[in-house]
Design a protein around this nucleic acid. Structure first.
Length: 592
DNA sequence: AGGCGCGTTAC
RNA sequence: GUUGUAACGCGCCU
């Protein structure tokens, strides 16, 4: 049997050459692809969450994989409907989720790996959502070099995941995947429907939010849009080699040179300062146009250098394309055209602006901010985050942390703060987080004080020390140290995170590599030996949600399986059927 | 070098 | 009990 890596590499090659692929369905008979899929899915939170049946990752086995393959050979695979749940979105609205049963997730992941190997080399440079080695930061870094942009067009597609047209999606797939059986399998999956309150509902459009292959299907669908933007729209709205220079600017330059020749450095300098106030190019130049594009899932942003009327026309053309070719609705109200110099566009939680002239001079005396793009953390983000640590306008303690020890309280605050700063590391106004830092520190000290019935000052005195910050400076901080026998102490630190933003960096394009190789878990499963009793029959894997769950209840006698799992720090234990049943019955006689 | 666990974010 | 795909950061363990 060919290895998963070989299969996927062959498909990847076809993808690079943009050649169609055939006999794809047969690849689903390869056991290794399922082991790959299992290894990829088992660490997920949802692996232990039930769909419409009781089946979860717990009890996974080679036999289960082989049964799935048998059913696929007979072309009798039945997708189960997804379980419908709702989660709250940030803006208060609800997002419908479709949670597939475990087996469906595994098969979806196998299919996803095949689709990824094939389509990943073909996807656009400008698409960043749900893709390996890409993310929000790579999308934002792309925007950073859109110098001279006059208009932003923020794209918004209404209810994208739920409105993807099945027929069009299948047509797109069938163009490259010449295999009726594979396409039918995808089609059946799309039509599997969902259960809400025990009632079956059909899915006439859309991909399930929560489905393993949904993100890549969403990307394959909008890849059509990327291609059209790049091959039709951008060429249409690109004109001229470079922008005409600004006559006024040139006049001043000539003047400065003349003054310098005459030796009047002082007046020359005055003119240089004057010149900084105006752009070096003619921003109204109708013979110069540039259009740039970036997409993250269904969210896209265009930067346009040209007239407002053209920007409006671009928006209209996009709306028409989406409706006519992809049967998608571009939200007319939410798709905004903003003036880059005076308003901020919103994208991926950042504010994007074009900087006005003359507000920044770099160390070499050059004008750095001539229409350059600024990425900013929105004031509202800071405000909202501060509120989380406040009550009635003042910093306050956190009730839900009062039971924790000092170490984890400090650790929690630091992790929250660090995560947020890390996300906004590209923002020029990153230093605004110093306000949040202050509120959080006060809240932290109040939590400690409340817990120990003590005062803020006493707590501060207790833990105050210094550390080397991420930018190398010695700065004050708070530290809780936990000494351990024969080991170096554990340290939780509050502070030491520098608020210097990351300057624009060259985006390095890491080449996509197919997912392959055997993980530790797969090796253990393939060993086919019960890790409790040594039996070699009916081997399956016992899974737990979290390691922390192991030491929850204070049992008098800790079962052997718990001992092994916590000693090895593994959420999995390869066992025989008998031992697995014993574990679930709480019957520890066999396993202890 | 790999597993596990915490945090942030996007959609 | 809240799913999925990703990205980033930190830490621990063997």
């Amino acid at each position: 049997m060919r290895t998963a890596k070989t299969i996927l590499t062959v498909i990847q090659e076809r993808g690079k050459q943009k050649k169609p692929i055939e006999r794809v369905y047969k690849l689903l008979f390869n056991r290794e692809l399922y082991l790959n899929a299992y290894a990829k899915l088992y660490p997920n939170n949802g692996a232990m969450t039930k769909g419409v049946t009781d089946e979860t990752v717990d009890g996974m086995s080679i036999q289960k994989i082989d049964r799935m393959i048998e059913i696929l050979r007979e072309e009798k695979y039945q997708w189960k409907p997804a379980r419908r749940e709702y989660i709250k979105k940030k803006n208060g609205k609800k997002r419908p989720l479709g949670i597939p049963v475990w087996g469906d997730k595994v098969l979806q992941e196998v299919m996803r790996q095949i689709l990824e190997a094939y389509y990943e080399p073909q996807f656009s440079e400008h698409s960043h959502g749900f893709r390996p080695n890409r993310g929000c930061h790579t999308a934002l870094q792309e925007i950073q070099v859109w110098k001279g942009t006059r208009w932003f067009i923020e794209g918004d597609i209404s209810q994208y995941f739920d409105t993807i047209d099945h027929k069009i999606l299948l047509e797109i797939l069938a163009r490259n995947i010449h295999d009726g059986r594979f396409i039918r399998l995808v089609s059946n999956m799309l039509e599997a429907g969902y259960l809400e309150e025990w009632k079956f509902n059909q899915t006439i459009s859309g991909v399930p939010q929560g489905g393993v292959i949904s993100p890549i299907l969403a990307n394959i669908f909008l890849n059509e849009f990327d291609n059209w933007i790049e091959e039709v729209l951008i060429p249409k709205y690109t004109k001229g080699k470079r922008q005409k220079s600004n006559p006024e600017y040139n006049k001043l330059t000539a003047e400065i040179q003349k003054l310098r020749k005459e030796g009047d450095a002082k007046t020359a300098h005055q003119f240089v300062v004057e010149r900084r106030k105006i752009p070096s190019v003619n921003t109204q130049d109708e013979n110069y146009r540039r259009l740039r594009y970036v997409r993250y899932a269904d969210d896209f942003l265009l930067g346009f250098t040209g007239s407002k009327a053209d920007a409006e026309e671009i928006k209209a053309e996009i709306g028409r394309f989406l409706k006519e070719k992809l049967n998608l609705i571009m939200s007319e109200e939410k798709t905004l055209i903003t003036n880059a110099g005076s308003q901020a566009a919103k994208f991926l939680g950042y504010e994007i602006k074009a900087q006005r002239v003359n507000d920044y001079i770099d160390p070499k005396g050059r004008r750095g901010a001539n229409g350059a793009i600024a990425l900013l953390v929105p004031a509202k983000v800071i405000e909202e985050k501060c509120k989380k640590y406040m009550k009635r306008g003042k910093a306050t303690h956190r009730n839900n942390l009062l039971q924790d020890d000092d170490f984890s309280i400090v650790q929690t605050y630091q992790q929250e703060y660090r995560g947020l700063v890390q996300y906004y590391i590209l923002a020029q106004n990153l230093s605004w987080f110093s306000k949040l830092y202050w509120y959080m520190e006060t809240s932290l000290l109040k939590t400690l004080a409340c817990k120990h019935r003590s005062s803020i000052n006493k707590q501060k005195a207790k833990y105050k020390t210094t550390t080397t910050s991420t930018s190398g400076k010695t700065v004050p901080c708070l530290q809780v140290v936990v000494e351990r026998p024969n080991k170096k102490p554990l340290v939780a630190t509050w502070g030491g995170i520098s608020l210097v933003h990351k300057r624009k960096a060259v985006i390095e394009d890491i080449p996509y590599k197919v997912y392959g190789g055997r993980t530790e878990l797969v090796k253990r499963l393939l060993a086919e030996k019960c890790e409790l009793c040594g039996s070699t029959e009916n081997i399956e894997v016992h899974h737990i949600r979290k390691l922390a769950d192991l030491k929850k209840k204070g049992q008098a006698e800790v079962p052997k399986w718990v001992q092994i799992m916590s000693a090895r720090k593994r959420k999995t234990l390869v066992v025989c059927r008998e031992c697995h049943v014993a574990i679930h019955n709480g019957n520890i006689t066999k396993s202890s």
